[in-house]
């Protein structure tokens, strides 16, 4: 059991950076940003290409983050400057990234077998292969979680949060909401690309198709986390999203263990997210019925 649980938790932690990225757009900015479907494989592609070329894994991950942030800026400019609806702006960038990811890798799939990754670092320090993924996952979640928490406690972070709640209010307080929206998308996509860079190294390959369903997995993590672990404060929400990502992986591992064909995974996730999104409606109906009785 524990043999199964540890790698699952580790995967959840590596994916939690992506979930945090989705949280920043979906909840903080109040935008459903589909760019992530392209930035997740972008991060994987950039990191894989750099690792194959012999760069240090940490450098590769950071450059992947920069690439992701640029993609976020593109979506942000399409939305704020060209007034394209956010959902469509994200789709445009996502589609463009498909070609870019192919260009980055030069082909559809890049193997990382026999290449030093961030996990080989951990192994060199003396962790076994299971533990190395857990350590890297926990460390990356902690580092980026603290960075996000710090940033959103600053003036500019507060301005981004206020933009999501009430753009009119924060403009009346002197903040350029075009700038805060672009910044939010930048940060979100940087995190998603960094998550992609980690997952590519953990899987041992980068694939141009690995971004399919990223947004839904992200939403699943965010919503599961919020329902199970609460949203009392910003800090609480961040922790909830990370725990939600881990819980999602455990649920997936459990249903696969129970014999669900892996091909049905995306269908299962979509149904799960649809149900979770409908939860507030169900709740209010039940409450209304209770009140009527």
């Amino acid at each position: 059991m524990i043999d199964l649980l540890l790698p699952t938790v580790s995967q959840g932690l590596l994916w939690s950076l992506m979930a945090l990225g989705v949280y920043l757009t979906y909840r903080v900015l109040d935008i459903a940003d589909l760019t992530v479907e392209g930035t997740f494989p972008l991060g994987a592609a950039v990191a894989a290409e750099m690792l194959v070329k012999g760069f240090n894994p940490v450098t590769a991950i950071l450059v992947a983050g920069v690439a992701g942030s640029l993609a976020g800026v593109v979506t942000g400019l399409l939305h704020t400057k060209l007034k394209i609806p956010a959902l469509l702006a994200g789709i445009l960038t996502m589609i463009a990234l498909y070609s870019i990811n192919l260009r980055v890798m030069g082909k559809a799939n890049l193997s990382l077998l026999r290449v030093d990754t961030v996990f080989s670092f951990a192994k060199n320090i003396g962790f076994n292969s299971t533990m190395s993924v857990l350590v890297v996952g926990a460390a990356s979640t902690l580092i980026f979680g603290l960075l996000i928490y710090w940033f959103f406690g600053t003036e500019i972070g507060a301005a981004i949060r206020a933009t999501g709640f009430n753009p009119q209010m924060i403009r009346a307080q002197g903040v350029n909401t075009n700038l805060t929206i672009v910044l939010g998308l930048l940060l979100s996509n940087a995190l998603v690309a960094i998550s992609g860079a980690f997952i590519a190294q953990s899987n041992g390959f980068a694939d141009v198709g690995m971004g399919v369903g990223t947004i839904v997995i992200g939403l699943a993590s965010v919503i599961i986390g919020e329902v199970l672990f609460g949203t009392r404060s910003f800090k609480n929400s961040l922790i909830s999203v990370v725990l939600g990502s881990v819980t999602y992986r455990i649920v997936i591992a459990a249903v696969l263990q129970m014999g669900m064909p892996p091909n049905d995974l995306k269908l299962f996730t979509a149904v799960l997210v649809a149900l979770a999104l409908a939860l507030p409606l169900f709740k209010s109906r039940i409450n209304a019925r209770k009140a009527a009785e």
Binding site: T154, A158, A159, A162, Q173
Partner: peptide, 19 residues
Amino acid sequence: EENLAIAARRGKVPGFSWA
């Protein structure tokens, strides 16, 4: 308090100090 702190900085470019 977060709303008030934003208003206390009305018209200033937000920076990296605590909100």
